[in-house]
């Protein structure tokens, strides 16, 4: 049975009528054509589908769309402000932390959630937190450096 939900996606109000048991991932990609959020496993094991729901990192592949009624969803497409990249996006570029880039949106969303709650995480915190996400290409080192870089920038902003 279809139900009608309203949610905010990347700052825009959306009304969606669909089967509430569909995955949020599919609704984002198929109904809203927001394909930046990726499928990697469908089992909450790889983090490719990570989005922010009310500011928290969530695996959209195991999130029924019916559970996100009246929430605020942010996907990788919603991070930049016009032409200005989010600091985490900029840090991934600056560190060259991208190879095929397929894991990148999920990595970035996960890192954004981390830095929003802990602007200056230790290396072990970063590794433990980012361990939820799999990259098959790049050996993680440059991704770690990107998260460190974004955190450093946080520090520069908050500590004059």
């Amino acid at each position: 049975m279809d139900v009608t939900m309203s949610l905010t996606v990347n700052g825009e109000k959306k009304t969606i009528t669909t089967d509430p048991s569909r995955r949020l991932l599919d609704v984002l990609r198929e109904d809203l054509q927001l394909t930046g959020t990726k499928y990697g496993c469908g089992q909450s094991q790889c983090g490719a589908c990570t989005v922010l729901i009310n500011g928290r990192a969530v695996h959209s592949c195991v999130t029924p769309v019916g559970s996100v009624n009246n929430t605020e969803v942010i996907t990788v497409e919603g991070l930049a402000r016009g032409d200005v990249l989010h600091p985490v996006q900029a840090a991934f570029l600056a560190e060259g932390a991208i190879q095929c880039g397929y894991c990148t949106p999920g990595m970035i969303m996960r890192a954004v959630a981390l830095l929003d709650s802990d602007p200056n995480p230790s290396d072990s915190t970063i590794k433990a937190w980012m361990n939820a996400n799999i990259c098959r290409c790049n050996g993680y080192t440059k991704i770690l450096n990107a998260v460190r870089r974004a955190a450093r920038q946080n520090l520069e902003v908050t500590v004059p």
């Binding site: 394909t35 497409e77 930049a80 996006q89 991934f92 570029l93 060259g96 991208i98 880039g101 990148t104």
Partner: peptide, 23 residues
């Protein structure tokens, strides 16, 4: 020289369409 991947910006914004993103 270390030229970055030319379309890397599209990879961090989600703008690039991978094979599974073709609609």
């Amino acid at each position: 020289t270390s030229v970055p991947r030319p379309n890397s910006r599209d990879l961090v914004t989600g703008a690039h369409h991978y094979p599974s993103d073709q609609i």
